[in-house]
Amino acid sequence: MATDYTHIILADDDEDDRMFFTDAFDELKMTVKVTTYNDGVYLMDYLNQEDAILPNILFLDLNMPRKSGMECLKEIKENSRFKDVVIAIYSTSASEEDIENTFIKGANIYIKKPSDFKVLKKVLSNVVTTNWQYHTNGLNKDNFLLRL
């Protein structure tokens, strides 16, 4: 992608969370373009358009109506068009089961939504500044869940 900013998409049905997310990037003052979708169906509708600009990093909430984050993850990983998209799971829960399943399905990182706005900013900036090319090579189950 020949753009000089990082394209970020968030799919989350919770309005407050979408607000925290965009606020955090606003305050971080990074060269990013953030787009949000209200659920999995809207997200996939966008991504499946032929002329869609694919994101560098896609943040997926797991628990969404109509189409869950897990379903989106499955569809994206089955389509080679999206092979370069970094997928970050962005969920309230951090149950062993969810972590295990998303790891197997091929997500790149698992983020448990923090309960402190300052921590949120730190997490997001960390994710955006990570060299994913390098990180993906050394990906394993232990560093899959993001810990700060």
Partner: peptide, 18 residues
Amino acid sequence: ASHDLQEPLRKIQTFLSR
């Protein structure tokens, strides 16, 4: 308990931090 209860609580805490 893990998801639905935590979610509003997390938001309360996030708003408090804000």
